[in-house]
Structures are given as structure tokens and as C-alpha cells.
Simulated scan of single mutants.
Amino acid sequence: MSPEMQIVVIALATGLTIGAFVWIARQQLIARWEQDCAWLAHAIWRFSPEPFDPKPYVAGYYIGAFLLLLFLLALVPSKIVGLVIWVVLILLPRMIIDRRWEKRRALIDEQLPATVLQMSSSVASGMSLVQALERLSERAPEPIRTEFRVITNHWRMGSDLSATIEEAKRRLRLQNFTLFSSAILINQRMGGNITQTLERLAHALESVERMRREVYSSTSEGRTNIKVLVVAPFIMLGIVAVMDLKAVMLLFQRPLGWILLGIAAVFTAVGTLWAWRIVNADV
């Protein structure tokens, strides 16, 4: 059999194998597809509740992940190391999105006390509640301005104000924003002095934010130690590689080395998570 014919046979066998696998696992693959689409739609909804079709992006992600796997298997000498790198890289987009969302939530939580006080001043000057929200959607800093812009835009399109505020509360899942939204919703249903309520709420939120900053400042040394804990194994591995590269390569080429690397990774992860939970006390 000629080399060209061998390539054709191998390609056909590979294609048939992949096709058979897809057909056998089609139910699981469809469920995974729907799960990933739902997760991406929910992730984007947290940033903006505007309509979004996640299917093209999930399909592109699948294609990119498959091509990345082929590239790593062809490039990395150790197939197991290549698979580990592939798993880390395909999980990276989700980690980045979650990290960006947490940073956005933290910034909104930090901006909320001043925003509530500004809203209280607007209402005290004679504006209605909706007018005060519209003013915040124009003058408040980002990213909290986007949240108020979404609320006011939905209200202009005919949505109920209480429903849009409830949606923002579900999307953000911030304790301070829940207090703020509850104050507005109670005022909408039962009436009362909304100006005084917002002023008291703003001062309470400022006290909580001040306490949170004090805790953050007190635990700054601990966070620095965590970063050192994460980086130190890689630095030590690099130093040893400079002195004896062959010995380091055995860790990536032998099963015993893979086991040692796995144990080191587990201990580092457990220590990091444990220390992180200690220095990130909830206020």
C-alpha cells in the first residue's frame, strides 16, 4: 500500500471513529451543548440583560478547543502534559468571565453608598423617584451607571419599575444592593419618607464600606503571602531546571514524576484556598 493510500485509510478510520463516538454519545453531547449555551447566556445576562444568542460563540469555542487539542498533542512531547495544558486553557475563558464579573460586582458595591446619597439629594430637591433614577443613569460612575440605565430603559419601554429593580437585584446578588432595592420597593408599595430612608441607608452602607476597607488593609500582608505561595513552586522549579534540566524533565516524562507534580499541585491548591478563605472574611 502506497504512503498516500495509508494516509487516506488513516483519515477515514479516524473520521469513522469520531463519527461513531459522536453518534453514541449524542445525548450527552446535546445536554452539554445546552448546558454551555445556558451558562454563557446567563453570564452575559449578568453584564447586560439585553437579548443575546450564545450558540455561535459556543460553537466557536468548541471548534477552537478541538484545534487547540490537536496543536498541543502535536507540539508537546508528553501527551499527558499536553492534555493538562489543554484542560487549563479551555477552563480559562470561564475563569476570566467569572473574575471580571466579581470585579464588576465589587466596584458596584463600592460605588453604591455615594450613589444612594446622590439619589437621596435628587429626591429631596423635588425630583420623582423615576427622575432620580434617570439622573443616576446619566451622571453616576461606571459600572453602576449601566445598571440604572438598564432600569430606566426598561421602564421607558413599558416595564414595571418594581419588576426591573427586582431583575437587577437577582442579577447582581449584592447584599447592599438588595437593601437599596428593598427600600425602594417598600416605598413604592407602602409610601413613606423615601429621602430620609435613603439618607440613613447611605450612611449605613458607608460605615460597612469603611469597615470592609479596614479589614482589607489589615489582611494585605496575608494576600501577599498567598501570591508568594502560588508563585514559589514555579520559581523553585525554574531554578532547579537551570542547575539540572535533565532531572526536571524526568518529572514530565515519567509516571512517578507526574504523580509528584500532581501531589504538589493539590497541596498548593489546598493551601492557597485555605489561606484565601482566611484573609477574605465576609463583612
Rank of each mutant, 00 (worst) to 15 (best):
Val88Gln: 03
Val123Ala: 06
Val81Met: 11
Leu136Ile: 13
Gln27Pro: 02
Leu69Thr: 03
Glu134Met: 08
Pro113Arg: 01
Ile85Ala: 15
Ala65Cys: 03
Leu136Lys: 02
Leu117Cys: 01
Ile44His: 07
Gly64Arg: 09
Tyr62Gly: 02
Gly60His: 12
Leu72Thr: 08
Met127Ile: 05
Lys55His: 04
Pro77Ala: 13
Phe71Val: 09
Glu110Cys: 05
Val87Trp: 08
Cys37Leu: 01
Ile44Leu: 11
Phe52Asn: 04
Arg145Phe: 04
Trp101Phe: 15
Glu102Met: 09
Ser122Val: 06
Phe47Asn: 01
Lys79Asp: 11
Ser78Asp: 08
Glu110Leu: 13
Arg100Ala: 11
Glu50Gln: 12
Leu73Glu: 12
Arg139Asn: 09
Glu110Val: 11
Gln27Arg: 13
Ile144Ser: 05
Arg26Thr: 06
Pro51Lys: 00
Trp33Leu: 14
Ala43Thr: 15
Val87Cys: 08
Arg135Trp: 14
Asp109His: 15
Pro113Asp: 03
Ala41Asn: 00
Trp45Tyr: 14
Arg32Ile: 00
Phe47Ala: 10
Asp109Gly: 13
Met119Tyr: 01
Trp101Pro: 00
Glu142Arg: 07
Thr146Arg: 13
Arg135Met: 14
Trp86Ser: 09
Arg94Leu: 06
Ala38Ser: 10
Phe47Trp: 13
Ala140His: 05
Asp109Gln: 15
Val88Ala: 11
Trp33Asp: 05
Val87Tyr: 06
Trp39Ile: 00
Ile90Gln: 04
Ala114Cys: 06
Ala124Cys: 03
Ile96Gln: 03
Val87His: 04
Leu68Gly: 01
Val84Ser: 06
Arg105Gln: 10
Lys79Trp: 08
Arg104Asp: 03
Ser121His: 10
Gln118Thr: 15
Ser137Thr: 05
Leu117His: 04
Ala132Asp: 01
Arg32Cys: 09
Arg100Val: 08
Lys55Gln: 06
Arg105Ala: 07
Gln118Lys: 09
Val123Ile: 15
Cys37Met: 07
Leu136Cys: 05
Leu91Glu: 08
Ile63Gly: 02
Leu68Thr: 04
Leu129Lys: 05
Leu129Gln: 09
Leu29Phe: 15
Lys103Val: 12
Arg104Gly: 01
Ser128Phe: 08
Ala59Arg: 11
Leu29Cys: 11
Phe71Gly: 03
Lys79Leu: 06
Tyr61Asn: 03
Pro113Val: 02
Arg99Gly: 11
Ala74Pro: 00
Trp101Val: 12
Ala106His: 14
His42Asp: 12
Val76Gly: 06
Trp45His: 14
Glu102Trp: 12
Glu138Ser: 11
Leu136Pro: 03
Ala124Arg: 13
Glu102Asn: 13
Pro49Leu: 00
Gln28Pro: 04
Trp39Gly: 00
Val81His: 06
Ser120Met: 03
Ser137Pro: 02
Arg26Phe: 05
Val116Trp: 09
Arg32Tyr: 14
Tyr57Lys: 10
Ala124Ser: 11
Ala38Phe: 05
Ile80Thr: 09
Tyr57Ile: 01
Arg32Gly: 14
Ser121Phe: 10
Lys103Tyr: 11
Asp36Met: 15
Ala140Val: 07
Phe52Tyr: 12
Gln131Ile: 10
Ala59Met: 07
Glu50Gly: 03
Met127His: 09
Glu34Leu: 13
Gln118Cys: 08
Ile96Val: 13
Val88Leu: 11
Arg145Met: 10
Ser128Tyr: 06
Ala132Leu: 08
Glu134Ser: 07
Ser137Ile: 06
Ile144Met: 04
Arg100Asp: 10
Ser137Cys: 03
Leu117Phe: 09
Ala65Tyr: 02
